[in-house]
Amino acid sequence: MKITILYGTETGNAEMLAEDIQAEFEAAHDVNCQNLSETSPDDLAPDRFYLLVCSTYGDGDLPASAQPFGAALTKAQPDLSQVHFAIFGLGDSEYDETFNHGPQKLATLMTACGAIQLGPRIAHDASGADLAEDLAMPWASAVIALAQTALGIPA
């Protein structure tokens, strides 16, 4: 399957995780990895599956590298009804009132444009004991399986 991992980051944790996911799945799939800062909503294609990896900054906001993409979704309201995505969030429960609000906002923006979200949004906690990759790999396997069905690709 064709998979694009899109990351939104401020200090690089989401980028590192995105690269780890790419390394884990590139033997079995056609995977590329790209910063949301270099992505336009118009680039999103129906025959690819998008794995979004995004952190949270400021007061529950999108991280710097995801802000232009978020703004483009809000402004242009592109039709994404053929686009399938799943999202993994990074945050820190020290910010309890806005914990993982960045990825939550991004998912809401995507679905508001009609994009189809597969699987649950997982929230990594920088203050927690889990390593992001330990949560992300099982999540990615599960959503890739869902996407194969949704995109009608034989496993």
Binding site: N13, D92, E94, S127, L131
Partner: peptide
């Protein structure tokens, strides 16, 4: 008491 901020060390380790 800001362990989440210190967690950037995991990225630096790489």
């Amino acid at each position: 008491d800001h362990q989440g901020t210190k967690a950037i060390a995991r990225q630096f380790a790489r």
